[in-house]
Simulated scan of single mutants.
Amino acid sequence: MSDASYTQTVAKHGDAEMGDYFALLKPRVMTLVVFTAFVGLLAAPVTVHPFIAFCAILFIAIGGGASGALNMWWDADIDAIMKRTARRPIPAGKVTEGEALALGLGLSGFSVMFLGLATNWMAAGLLAFTIFFYVVVYTMWLKRWTPQNIVIGGAAGAFPPMIGWVAATGSISIEAVLMFALIFMWTPPHFWALALFMRSDYDDAGVPMLTVTHGRRATRIHILVYTVLLAVLALAMGFTSAGGPVYLVAAVILNALFLKGAYDIWRRDEVVSETDNFAVEKKFFKLSLAYLFLHFGAILIDAFLTRVGMWP
């Protein structure tokens, strides 16, 4: 995974602080994992004991962090090349690859086992599959092999709300599938927008992102197509038991803005976009960050209003 020159730069045992180990868990990504899993659990049409709910979210979060540590272990060589990731604990020389591997494997086993004990083994099995999919299927295989890496690999980030739902109900329903689909279809335009203005990073690291293999024009078309499909799925969620008036209003507004942003990206002229520092792409990327949180926030609000009797 790492060449000799890179290996010489890694940390020595004892150099790391607690914050460095925590950084291995990708806390920003973990925030999204925790939030969407929490929404999936709370939106389920059953009542879950608060302590069980807390344990479920805790173990899902730990499983997400374990995936992050294993991802950083495997990708340490390319992380050292890319500006966006060069300060991560391993390329920065604060944590060794072996420590990251041990932490990731240990937390993976711990989170799956205790989620099964706290809720049900179907939820635990989904968590185990999610970790496997993110680390093996996406990180080790797809990421460096195909420009569709982020499309297929996006499934890993889409599982948390489904796991939360299954932890509560013990089964999978159309609501859980649509929550999964919402994140799955959101991931490609979100990351492709980033890749449009960070293309040199992926070029330098040899990662076959769509912008590298097919160019920016093809990437812009893909963003528009996926955003249209995403809007259809997002609106469909509003007509299930997990949706409601708040969600429908939010979905209409957010998807109108998202479609407008995707259209603006699609119609960009390459010469113009180079001279204005990809302002449209950066705006779309920032909107994409809010897009997912606001959709799931609306689901959470409708679930709360349903529980207190304001919605049927």
Rank of each mutant, 00 (worst) to 15 (best):
L257G: 04
F191Q: 01
I221H: 13
L182F: 09
E274T: 12
R220G: 00
Y226A: 00
R220L: 04
F180Q: 02
G215D: 08
G244I: 05
G170H: 10
T275A: 14
V271H: 15
V252R: 00
F180G: 03
G215Q: 09
A279N: 10
S171L: 09
A205Y: 07
V228H: 06
P208Q: 09
I223H: 02
V212R: 11
T187C: 08
A262Y: 04
A242C: 09
T213P: 01
A205V: 09
H222F: 05
K286S: 12
M237D: 02
I174N: 02
I253K: 05
I223V: 14
I221K: 15
F180E: 00
S173H: 12
T240P: 02
S273D: 15
L230R: 01
F191T: 03
I163F: 08
A168Y: 09
L259M: 10
S200R: 15
H190I: 05
R199Y: 11
A262H: 02
A279S: 14
H222T: 09
M179P: 03
G261S: 07
P189R: 08
V271Q: 14
R267N: 15
T219V: 07
A218Y: 12
P189E: 07
V225L: 12
A193F: 02
L254M: 14
K286I: 13
L235Q: 11
E175C: 10
V177D: 01
S200L: 13
E281C: 10
A262M: 05
K283Y: 07
V252F: 14
V252C: 11
G206R: 10
K282P: 06
P245K: 05
E175T: 06
W165Q: 00
L229T: 05
W192L: 07
V271D: 15
D276E: 11
G206H: 13
V246A: 10
L178M: 12
I172F: 09
Y263W: 12
H214E: 13
A262C: 04
H214W: 09
S241C: 07
V271F: 12
A195T: 11
T275P: 01
M179W: 01
F191N: 01
L196S: 08
V228M: 13
I174S: 11
A168N: 04
N255A: 07
L178Y: 07
I223Q: 00
I253Y: 11
L287E: 10
L194G: 08
A195S: 14
S171R: 14
F258K: 02
V212M: 09
F239A: 04
P189G: 03
P245V: 08
E175L: 00
V225T: 11
